[in-house]
Computed example of a mutant assay.
Amino acid sequence: MPGITREEVAHLGRLSRLELKDEELDHFAGQLDAIIGAVARVAEVAGEDVPPTSHPLPLTNVMRPDVVRPSLTPRQALSGAPAQEQQRFKVPQILGED
């Protein structure tokens, strides 16, 4: 497999809008070549008889089912609020937007 060239790293840098120095081009070329080589080795190992998995252990959903239950009314939920407006909590403005 041919290695990653300085020109390819420079091209990737331009696409990423990164200004790379000459010594960085050499350094990153070696690192990218090692990464691509590692990915290629993983691709060789994964065979078609191995099913894709997202986790090595079997997991089951442990969440409870959604059940509609009585809830607080807006008045009850806002009863302890220091400030409210239009049945909502009123908080100080922090972003300077209207």
Score class of each variant (00 low, 15 high):
F89H: 07
Q93N: 11
N61R: 09
L32M: 12
V67D: 08
V50D: 09
E7W: 05
D66G: 04
G13M: 04
P58I: 06
P82N: 07
R69T: 10
L59A: 01
V42Q: 11
F28C: 03
L78R: 07
D26Y: 06
V62E: 05
E48Y: 07
F89D: 05
R17S: 09
P74M: 14
V39N: 05
E85D: 10
A46S: 02
Q31G: 05
K90H: 08
P2E: 14
E85A: 13
R17L: 09
L25D: 02
A81N: 05
R64A: 11
P52G: 07
R6S: 06
F89A: 12
Q76S: 13
M63G: 06
P58L: 12
E19I: 09
F28G: 01
P74F: 14
I94V: 15
G47K: 13
L72K: 14
Q84A: 15
D33Q: 14
P2H: 09
Q87T: 00
D49K: 13
L15Y: 06
I4A: 07
F89N: 05
P52Y: 15
P92Y: 15
L32D: 02
T5G: 06
S79F: 10
E24R: 14
M63R: 08
N61F: 09
E23A: 05
P74I: 09
Q31K: 13
Q86N: 15
Q93G: 09
T53I: 06
L57F: 10
